[in-house]
């Protein structure tokens, strides 16, 4: 029972990071109808910058800021420099460009920093906290949980309560009508990319200390999990990304804890298959098609 509490609470913290990354995929999908396969590589570049900032200043807050700003700027550069020039009638060309981007970024990182994992120490302790004498999640996991929750709530407020969010949502589902109402749709697409890349960078920054360390491929597995989650929840659905992230996070934690870490990917795959069988609409199925 004690073990279950520990595994579930740790899984929730992990799950929120996956959910954050999945949310970043949902934001781009809604804004630009692209599954950004380059998201993990872009986020890792931003985290390298955060790493350098941390090494230079010793400030974790500045490192977080560095990751967010670099992430946003990368999103801006990729959208304005690359994606805007891709013919946009179907999602496929953009996704192929995104895959090309992964190869370029990961090769560059490999050339610049080599294959070794740079360890990044967490800002808080990783030994479990106790409630009574029951071990629950660690201080660092608690920190991750709080940060992820704040970001999720903030994104919710931004999209649902602000005029910018209203324009982002309208531009995503009805670009032509939005333009006819004066919404600067291309700007909304750019903002969507910047927001998305910044959120992804933050998710990877939160993850790295609990993994092997920083490396060109640090976020590959996170991407796979988040992509699974986004597919499960529906690429159009922020709520689906959140719930899906929690489910996958807890599942991985339980399977790793009670069986073995090696079985976790299999469990995620099993979950994906099951859900797609039940909801065969599958990958790009959305509630409703776009209205022009």
């Amino acid at each position: 029972m004690d073990r279950l509490v520990l595994l579930v609470s740790t899984g929730v913290a992990r799950g929120l990071v996956i959910a954050l990354f999945a949310l970043s995929l949902v934001i781009i999908w809604r804004a630009a109808r692209i599954v950004n396969f380059g998201q993990a590589a872009m986020a890792v570049v931003a985290v390298y910058v955060a790493f350098a900032v941390h090494a230079a200043t010793g400030s974790y807050v500045l490192a977080v800021l560095g990751a967010l700003v670099t992430g946003a700027l990368l999103g801006l550069a990729v959208e304005r420099g690359l994606m805007r020039r891709v013919p946009g009638a179907t999602p496929m060309p953009g996704m192929i460009v995104a895959i090309g981007l992964v190869m370029v970024l990961q090769s560059l990182l490999g050339v610049l920093f080599g294959p070794r994992h740079r360890p990044m120490s967490p800002v808080f302790s990783q030994s479990p906290l106790y409630v009574g004498d029951v071990p629950v999640l660690s201080r660092y996991d608690l920190f991750v949980l709080v940060v992820a929750l704040v970001v999720v709530v903030g994104l919710g407020l931004l999209f649902n309560r602000s005029t910018l969010g209203l324009q982002l949502r309208a531009a995503a589902v009805a670009p032509e009508v939005s333009r006819l109402l004066g919404v600067r749709v291309p700007r909304m697409v750019t903002i969507g990319w910047m927001l998305s890349s910044a959120v992804a960078a933050l998710a990877v920054l939160l993850l790295v200390p609990t993994e092997l360390g920083l490396n060109a491929h640090s976020a590959d597995v996170l991407f796979v999990h988040a992509f699974t989650v986004a597919v499960l929840g529906g690429l159009d659905s922020p709520a689906g990304a959140l719930v899906g992230g929690l489910v996958v996070g807890v599942l991985i934690s339980l399977v790793t804890g009670y069986a073995s870490a090696g079985l976790a990917p299999l469990a995620v795959l099993g979950l994906l298959t099951t859900v797609l069988l039940v909801r065969p609409g599958g990958i790009f199925a959305t509630k409703e098609a776009r209205t022009a």
Binding site: T163, L166, R169, A170, V173, A174, S178, L181, V183
Partner: peptide, 20 residues
């Protein structure tokens, strides 16, 4: 049907009023 179907009536109107 040029209504943004995923937004509410209120949100559609807010969108129309935004820049003005």
């Amino acid at each position: 049907r040029s209504v943004v179907t995923e937004l509410t009536v209120e949100e559609n109107l807010q969108l129309g009023a935004l820049w003005r």
